[in-house]
Amino acid sequence: MVNGPSPPTEPARADRPTLRERLGRRPLGAELWAGLVLLTLYGVGAVSALVYFGAGINGFTPNPAWVPPPPIAPVHGPSWAHPFGVLSGFGVGLFTVLWKATPWDVAIVAGVLAIDVALGVLLGTFAGMYEGSAFDAAVVFVTDSLTAVPSFILVVGLFAALEFLAPARVNLATFVLVFGLLLWPATARAVRERARIVAREPYIESARAAGAPPRRVYARHLLPNSLDPLLARIPLDLVPIFFVLTVFPWEWNCINPPYVAGAPFWLVPTLVPNSPLPTVNFPEYGNLLSIGVCEGMPYLTGQVYWWMVFFPLAAIVGLSAGIALVCDGIEQRMHRTPL
């Protein structure tokens, strides 16, 4: 019988501290609380919208009287009847339409981040664990090459190409998939850098020397300790998503609006070509903000209708900041100083 080193043993279940004890020792910080509260609000908003609006969640009906901008049509600022005011152009009450948009935007962000994080972490940690291997070289090469192509142009170009081959596939699900597949290289690169440093740490060597199998070393030690860059990376990955969803409808409708014979001289939004949205009247934060900027800040008149910009922008910033605060909060629990 060979007397090798005995594998490390798990502490007995009864010896492990409970969740309450853990939280008592290291309470959640203010940032983590703030982030969790924000995300819970968005979650509740999304679920309640799904329940309240049912099948009507995927569109809104404009009020023709509200479509022309002020001073042609009366201005409807925030009031009890319309808590967030009325958005000209789309001709809708902003509160209702932002509420309707919440489940869609939460789903888009969650879907993109899920693909991005899953691929980035998996490939990044494996590449870092087996530094110098062919797999590592391939990951580094692909990630560095893909970083050179701006994701926002590639997404739109890819959608334009998809319009030729499979127009039915130009939808939000494809948008989520494509964006997730384009964002993972930056995540993988950052995680790999951390994983290769962690893989050389003495505690990893000790675990290996103690006979822990590679699977256990990976899952128990390397993976949890390589996630720091991920927490700094996730909030940044949200920026291009809302950039694409906002800037292209804005450019299409406000800067170079298509000429339509017999159309009124004020803005009547149309769907930007190759858009992932099914219709122009689809509730989505970026789409609403693009028209809000156009109608709410007409600098030639010197008037500012702040609510048309503020509330869609607050919805985007709130969702993104919620995720960023959670990431910062987790970071703060792991280290003394958030990165």
Partner: peptide
């Protein structure tokens, strides 16, 4: 940096232009 990073450049630019 957290909040400003999420403000699309078109909003920031339009504000300065105004």
């Amino acid at each position: 940096s957290l909040v400003l990073a999420y403000v699309p450049p078109l909003v920031f630019g339009t504000l300065i232009l105004s």
